[in-house]
Amino acid sequence: MGTVVEISSGFFLLVGAFLSVSGGVGVMRFPDFYSRMHAVGVTDTLAASMILIGLMLQMPESLVVVKLILILLLTLFINPTASHALAKAALHNNLAPLLDKSGDNNAGDDSSNS
């Protein structure tokens, strides 16, 4: 296997690891449920794609690559649906989102429920 493939695979894996950790930190740092959902979105879309693409470059064996593509497609199709269902259930059960006050930049001042 060429070193170019090895290096690009390592690069994808490292970027994916960084994005995953960023998403995890975002889940801990953001003030309310709805904004945490966006942080989870980062780990679900680009981080998962990067890690799986990095794994695809590791092993150029056709069935394994097909299975990795299947996992990627399942992740990309399932997670928006789950996020939407979660947000809809939360809003319908009167979980009020923490909104930015219009105009001036004082987001997160009344973060009482976090």
């Binding site: 994916g16 995953s20 995890g24 945490r36 959902m37 989870v40 780990t43 979660l86």
Partner: peptide, 30 residues
Amino acid sequence: IAVATIAILVVMILAITRGIVGPTLYDRIL
């Protein structure tokens, strides 16, 4: 691959922490 695995484990620990701390039911489901 080992680096990525460790990063995923760290994220899983963070997610479990949010699941335990999470003030609402939906944080836990998330």
